[in-house]
Write a protein that binds this DNA or RNA. Structure first.
Lengths: 216, 216, 216, 216
DNA sequence: TATGAATGAGGTTTCATTCAT
DNA sequence: CATGAATGAAACCTCATTCAT
């Protein structure tokens, strides 16, 4: 599923160049937003010439889907890894499961938060350029949350299970990302210097509370 | 309490110009992010010359605090207005109170969401330029949520009331803003086309669930 | 002999404003070149509004003759003052007389050098705007040097006395000004940190040597 | 020995562009001061785009050292040229040697005076930006004047030979430059329309007189 | 194919001057 | 008359993109 504007890179050399550029972009994204990074900077960080960037990507914007691809790849990688696979302890109940879940997501943010930030920022700055990137990524997650909800069926009081799974996904992402990525620059400021574990537990409790509250 | 970089405008005419500029900026912020708006655009939208902007503001960045000032002013205006004042029905209980609260916040976003978006985006794009803007705005809100929590003391199971009030503030802001401002471009996509009332009720339930869940 | 572009200022108030502006300009000229000083700066330094400057002077350039007027006034003031009047000791001879002369000129530069610098710089930057300012100032000086040369007639070996007087004026001005005003930024650098008296004596010796050398 | 702020230009094309820019700047400096020349003008005179200037030079100020480099190059070129090499006739004596020297310096000014003017003006207008440019240029000259003074040892009455060489350099430069570059706009006006040879001879005589006068 | 030099539109900012109050 | 707000041309500089080598 090649991203738009990315030129075919069948040759080995071309593929290598592409990879160098992507890696360079990711490195730079750890420090600033995509809009603040110039093409020359990316080229130089990758050790190639500016012109070479344009040989592989139609224009600067064509690099954006790359960020989403990376994001998705990391999510999948974590899900597939031995330590990443999440198999909740059904005996222990929903609440501990959610705490474990938020803790894992938090760890992911610590590692790959820059990609998440880039994806979010881009979506906000250039809503016009947002394609189906989100939907694909989201559906997979929502499905797995649906399974989780079903696994603890007796503890969940929400009537509409699909809606509940979606809302769980929404809370998990939104709440963790905001404080995880911008602890100093937004509503997260109000949390003071809340510790990571305290924070993830609170988020888990909120999700738990939501699921355990019957929708009147 | 003039913001930094804003030049004194003692004369009536000067203040009028300042107001025209601020209004123009706000209008433009409904359509794009601050970084995408040029000074020439602001001037033209305000119907003044470019140089005039620089007579009232030291440089483009000096316009940023204006956004925060506006944001704060709108919050206060709503809080002060007859329909805005929020006096929860103590008989009805915490849950209805929270539903009313989220509904009001939602309405606010509908009206002044562009300011919220501008503030958030700016904080993310130029974290270096973020001053104490957030803190001042946040403390007032946190206090009022503390009062709310206390008012329904018997229903709240959280031990640390201050931390709870802060987390309530965090949830309210984060959850409402994400879907309110970017229903199509982020985690909110996963909610499908959830209706406003359904969404605000869900958020209220999550907050309620959080408060009603004892922290083990 | 009103300078060009200076508007008539018959009223007392107007005259006062003019004086405030001139004094402000002179103060600023001690720190930077005329081209680096903005009209707003002058107005502010003078404690008047920008528009007021334009009421008294046609435009910024019209302030330049003011500098020359000041320059001339200071020269005349020194020449007229009790300590300023230079009456060489005829018995002592030409060389001591020249040393005294250079020493006085040096002192003048210390006091009013900023005016000299402004005049020189302006002449170089805007040769088109130079009027008869120089000629008037120069002729007076040349005449007095002619008298000096005549006073030490027996020591002077130059044939053409008028040419000699002119060249003496030229040396005196050129040599003293360069090192006096720009000890760090031009040929003067080569002199190292030569002391004032050593320097003025050297200049006097050069002039003396020139006069005492017969033109073959 | 690249000047500061000048970007490396390894490729032939880049060096050609650099040369075009330098040549254009020199041409423009014949007509006006550096501060009066805009980057757009330089680019247009060189036949390149504005951005190209910034590809070769970090900013406008980085062009200034270029002027000094050119200046120095021209001095060295003259010193190295067959007609330029100055080997005084030891038999004829100091005075004719100095007359020849001033005549050569005068010729240099006629050819490359615009560079000298640019260097002087810049040093006066932006004293903050003056680096070691002068010192490097000056030391070479002072040394050669020292040799000259030594060559005519018997005619020189000054005690401190190094100081004498430095003062000779100072006189030569200062006196020739003022009248050479600004015959109409400064103390030089007083010289009337003195002819070139008469003027250079007078300067030579002054230097001679200075050297031949014993410092009491 | 890869390079990096060149382009030029567009952005921010300054400041001499004009003009309504 | 004085004021200082407003003007807008023009300066410097950046950077996505093109193109000759």
């Amino acid at each position: 599923m090649a991203s738009q504007g990315v030129k075919p890179a069948e040759q080995l050399r071309a593929r290598e160049t592409r990879d160098k550029l992507v890696a360079a972009l990711e490195r730079l994204l750890k420090e600033k937003a995509f809009t603040e990074i110039s093409v020359a900077e990316i080229a130089s960080e990758a050790g190639v010439a500016v012109g070479t960037v344009y040989r592989r990507f139609e224009n600067k914007d064509a690099l954006i889907p790359v960020v989403f691809d990376l994001y998705r790849a990391r999510v999948e990688a974590q899900a597939a890894s031995p330590e990443g696979r999440f198999e909740p302890d059904l005996e222990a109940g929903l609440r501990p499961a959610l705490r474990e879940l938020t803790r894992r997501a938090w760890r992911f943010l610590g590692q790959d938060g820059h990609l998440v930030r880039a994806a979010h920022l881009h979506a906000r700055l250039r809503p016009d350029l947002v394609g189906d990137e989100w939907e694909a990524m989201i559906e997979a997650s929502v499905t797995s949350y649906g399974l989780l909800v079903d696994a603890f069926d007796s503890e969940v009081k929400r009537g509409d299970r699909d809606a509940a799974a979606r809302f769980v996904f929404y809370m998990l992402n939104t709440l963790l990302v905001e404080y995880g990525l911008y602890p100093q620059d937004g509503p997260g400021v109000g949390l003071g210097q809340m510790s990571g574990p305290d924070f993830t537990d609170s988020v888990a409790d909120a999700i738990y509370g939501y699921l355990a509250t019957p929708d009147s």
